[in-house]
């Protein structure tokens, strides 16, 4: 059966006024973005900086509205922020004056839950992300990886339909990043959440995604959508998936898609910078 997608983008376009430029100057951040994400799917969106990844996220969050097109969550248009979507930011966005527990409770406070109930849910989710025993720590007492775990727990605690992740592991060191990628896959399997994961790392996109959406910059549009089939990837398997030939092939395909530019385009300074950012992955 063809079920209704959990999250659907229909020809989404987003323009901004260019500050300082003459009237009528519009910057197109995102153009004709169409995508359907099935319930329980983990989709990664990869693209260089300037391809409208953050714009895309703001639109799904409901913090800004598309210039044209629609975003549907379970068939209903997104009109504003809501607890049916949880967001994990690159910079954690934890309240520094609240403990790990307090940060996780933040999203639960508007729901009319009893205090004891909030605390129970928060503790459960901190345990889910492997932070049992760290409930009373303040963010400054936690490492980057642990902060991001708290942020993930916070976004899961209010049980959203969709988890949106904006380059969540980009600020972490390589080892912590790989560790958290495995954690995320484990949590995804355990909770069955629909996840839209934005990244500029090709490997990360291939490693996590069931499908990879490749964006091109200025304006951001879909270059390619790649289905990833790497077999049964059980966490803890001894093989190094990243050196598997199939993984390498996917990696190369995404790389090709990212670098395939129209021949007439002159390379601007911004694109060179974008290329560098991709190249370091």
């Amino acid at each position: 059966m063809t079920a209704q997608p959990r999250l659907a983008f229909e020809g989404v376009r987003k323009e901004f006024d260019v500050r300082g430029a003459g009237a009528g100057q519009r910057f197109v951040a995102l153009e004709d973005f169409t995508l359907a994400v099935a319930p329980g799917e983990l989709v990664t969106v990869v693209g260089p900086s300037g391809c409208g990844k953050s714009t895309l996220l703001d639109l799904v969050t409901g913090l800004s509205a598309p210039t044209a097109g629609r975003i549907l969550l379970d068939g209903r248009p997104v009109t504003g922020p809501g607890l049916d979507r949880g967001i994990v930011f690159q910079q954690y966005a934890l309240l520094p004056w609240r403990s790990a527990q307090g940060n996780v409770e933040l999203g639960l406070e508007g729901r009319g839950l009893r205090r004891a109930e909030r605390q129970r849910i928060a503790r459960e989710h901190l345990a889910l992300v492997g932070l049992e025993g760290f409930e009373q720590r303040y963010p400054h007492e936690l490492s980057g990886g642990m902060k991001q775990r708290v942020a993930i727990a916070r976004s899961l605690a209010f049980d959203p339909e969709v988890l949106l992740m904006d380059e969540p592991f980009a600020a972490l060191d390589a080892q912590t990043r790989e560790q958290l990628q495995d954690e995320l896959l484990r949590i995804w399997r355990a909770t069955g959440k629909t996840i839209l994961f934005i990244t500029h790392g090709i490997e990360e996109a291939v490693y996590l995604g069931q499908r990879i959406v490749v964006l091109t910059p200025r304006p951001g549009r879909v270059r390619d959508v790649i289905d990833v089939d790497l077999g049964d990837r059980t966490v803890g398997s001894s093989t190094d998936l990243r050196s598997d030939p199939r993984f390498v092939a996917y990696r190369h395909r995404v790389w090709d898609a990212l670098h395939d530019r129209p021949a007439a385009t002159t390379v601007s300074a911004g694109e060179v910078a974008a290329e560098k950012e991709v190249a370091h992955v």
């Binding site: 969050t61 409901g62 913090l63 922020p81 809501g82 607890l83 979507r85 967001i87 930011f89 910079q91 966005a93 309240l95 933040l106 999203g107 508007g110 209010f158």
Partner: peptide, 12 residues
């Protein structure tokens, strides 16, 4: 970012 994150949690 804190404001944005809190708003995304639907906080009034």
């Amino acid at each position: 970012l804190l404001v944005k994150s809190a708003r995304s949690l639907g906080i009034g």
